[in-house]
Design a protein around this nucleic acid. Structure first.
Lengths: 237, 237
DNA sequence: CGATTTCAAGAGCACCGCTCTCGTTTTTGA
DNA sequence: TCAAAAACGAGAGCGGTGCTCTTGAAATCG
């Protein structure tokens, strides 16, 4: 019966979750590079070798944490997307950006896991690709649905240089065939710039130059919206 | 005599430099987190314990590498500043941005050292502060000198929300008292966004969405220039 | 020259990722 | 039902790590 043969599977899921939880705690305390399987095992009261029944290597455990982080960040972005009406793309864009920021500030180490220095010799497996695009897809959804509703303004980005158009056309073809090309190009740049803004705050790179973080970020996010064309005018909210 | 008592000092400087060089090589090969003092010592043919005569701890060695990286990146930015005439602030801005990008692409691991995930438990000492602001100061120099020459246009950034003005005024007071406040605010955001753009490229975060990296970056940098006010119009060069 | 400081080296501690072996428990299938 | 197979936890062990302590040699200083 599935009740019985599921007993082991359920136990396995629980232990797996416990390992990941403890690993997350260790990452928060010591940093991803110093994540120690032995310390996780010690904290869980099991032999270090037993962990290898659940994750064949330390990198596999890290991959699981990365996938979870991508999913959590993507989920936050999608929640931000749903938190504002389609009728106001500018506000929606700022909401999505703010959701990414809030998630990053609440989970700095997990943010570092996906947007910090890549771990050398660690090649992200396919499993991370799909969850890895949830945030940019949420941003793209704002522009796409704004365009569908006739609310997409003229992107401030302007005319994209020729060699880039092949890239943006490929992206558009896969995710938003109707979307004007400049908006796609501006969106990709805005994505990178958004992560830059969040990184600076999460990693403390402003070094004290900015203290009114929230307002500063909101204005910068609004400017990105103007750049993409989902909001108009230089004025803040 | 300084020739004799300098013998030891010179030897010390040479060994110190050799250690840093080898450490940089190891960081490039294995990543900063996995930097191993023992491996450095082994490669240099000395006992691992001997390294501690030069760097009291692994973190101190990392700090030295970080300071060097900041200086190298700052130097590159300043060289970009000098490579274009004051009469064309827009081109100058793009040059500085491009210099930062080029340096990051040429030295990805050192870039990660200063703009990647911070190492937990590692507090950047004062020594890193001054070299750490060379890049933003180069960006600021573009705007400041453009303003001095009457070449600073209206920043697209618009009116900065009130609570941020205290921050920007403090920055302006220290580094560019004459510079209009919106330009300072836009500049700080542009700095973070620039690093975001470079990070995405250096760390491979675009995941294939962009292939015409150079042109894409140049256009994005030009857009940042417009945002700050050192270039006008949406057209690319 | 003698005293003092500087340096390299070795041994050792506690930790790490990972492998292998060895009993034990659970699941499976004839 | 009951043996075969699979999954599991624990322990020992390998080579590696950062770092400390001690020892002895070399360079500098008074």
């Amino acid at each position: 019966m599935s009740t019985f043969q599921g007993a082991r599977e359920r136990a396995r899921r629980e232990v797996t979750a416990a390992i990941k939880d403890e690993a997350r705690r260790r990452v928060a305390a010591e940093g991803a590079p110093r994540l120690s399987l032995r310390a996780v095992a010690r904290e869980l009261g099991m032999a270090s070798s037993a962990l290898y029944r659940y994750f064949p290597s330390r990198d596999d455990l890290l991959t699981a944490l990365i996938v979870d982080a991508y999913d959590a960040m993507g989920e936050a972005a999608e929640a931000g997307l749903a938190a504002a009406p389609r009728t106001d793309p500018g506000a929606r864009w700022v909401r999505v950006c703010g959701a990414v920021r809030d998630w990053g500030l609440a989970n700095p180490h997990e943010f570092g896991l996906v947007h910090g220095t890549p771990i050398p010799g660690y090649a992200a497996p396919r499993d991370t690709e799909q969850p890895g695009v949830r945030v940019p897809l949420a941003l793209l959804a704002v522009a796409r649905e704004a365009h569908e509703d006739g609310l997409l303004g003229r992107p401030a980005w302007g005319v994209t240089p020729e060699p880039v158009r092949a890239d943006t056309k490929a992206v558009a073809a896969e995710f938003a065939p109707e979307l004007p090309e400049p908006a796609v190009a501006a969106l990709l740049a805005a994505w990178a710039q958004l992560i830059g803004l969040v990184s600076f705050e999460v990693f403390g790179q402003y070094n004290g130059a900015i203290t009114a973080h929230e307002v500063f970020f909101a204005h910068a996010a609004h400017r990105l919206a103007v750049e993409v064309g989902v909001a108009a005018g230089p004025a803040a909210s």
